[in-house]
Design a protein around this nucleic acid. Sequence first.
DNA 1: ACTATACTGTACGGTACAGTACCAATACGG
DNA 2: CCGTATTGGTACTGTACCGTACAGTATAGT
Lengths: 205, 205
Amino acid sequence: MAQAMASRRGDRRRALILEAAIAVFMEEGYAGASMDRVVQRAGGSKTTLYRYFPSKADLFAAIIETLVAQMTAPIDHRAVSASGGLAATLTAFARTYLDVLLEPRSLALYRMVMGEGARFPDLGGVFFQQGPGRVATQLADYLRHYELGRATAPVELLAREFLSLVRADLHLRALLGVEIAGAEARSKAVSRAVTLFIAQYPCQE
Amino acid sequence: MAQAMASRRGDRRRALILEAAIAVFMEEGYAGASMDRVVQRAGGSKTTLYRYFPSKADLFAAIIETLVAQMTAPIDHRAVSASGGLAATLTAFARTYLDVLLEPRSLALYRMVMGEGARFPDLGGVFFQQGPGRVATQLADYLRHYELGRATAPVELLAREFLSLVRADLHLRALLGVEIAGAEARSKAVSRAVTLFIAQYPCQE
DNA sequence: ACTATACTGTACGGTACAGTACCAATACGG
DNA sequence: CCGTATTGGTACTGTACCGTACAGTATAGT
């Protein structure tokens, strides 16, 4: 079919442009990124860019959507294969979460959503619900199944607290451009978070 | 003296311009804020603006400096007057910290530093050291004096963990534009942080 | 080979912005 | 009341950018 073929070719061009745009927007931010630079990087022409993305705002929306999907994918995958004790599961989950969070793409995504929240209302809400919020919900679901009786607070709250502990100041430092924590610092943050989280339960046993 | 008088008058104009610039930069961000809008809001002329701030980057640096100073002031003050038990002190300190962190000015400051970190290297480092880093150091100093024997980890680490717990996801949600936590949510976050922090110590006693 | 569709290259309109030049007005000190 | 420093107003330069127009080229199915 002609249409199917065209669509496949079009999809490829679209994906190439989008990938180039992600790179440019990551480096320069929304305001700093120019459509001409995207074209230059993608290697096509301005006309084609505007065929797939009618405006800079549309391109930005597509970028955010793509990055969110890329970011949540590994965590979705990890959440399913949860087996073993509580500490081991929490450790594995937290490490995956932290690794994803500190990727350059994730950091750029957070920065863009924060910076352009004013010009794109609802963006922050959608992002939070579909990104960090969903991760917390997944962890809460696991906690709900694992331990019913001895919960000291609602599982949603417990999940959010644990994830905050995992982020610690590593996320903030990375976002501020101070430093991106290395492997040892991440391991330490995760183990401390698990320790503190488990310590909240009554001491017996 | 003529010079002293002139200097005083100049300082006032400078302060007025700076205040207007803070408002504009808070609303529009660095890239979105225009020097013309600053002039329009400050009510002077472009010439005067450029007399005090030779470039947009200089104006931005002055804004950051001012906001950091305004942000850390209340916490510096609070840190000195620490008296009472551990839980009470932690609660008071945390509440002050959280209130400051969720002020619109602080949120805008964080956003600006994060967003323009690429274009202004060292900015993130200086900000972190002088802002959040100093708060953590103050808390660590208090913890060091308060309890020597039964520490489970270095006080610097304990302080950072506690502050992370206080921030929880309230800071992130505010930065993303989801919502700014109200008084009840703040109280709850603080009390949960204190509870979890104290629970890490051995149960005896 | 023919045709529809996708693509390239580039020039252009309109706009916005950083920073400067220049002159008039005003405030302040002696 | 005069002279000096500071300020106001504004027009201007150069540049960068978003988005469009248009004329031509490659690709793929029939």
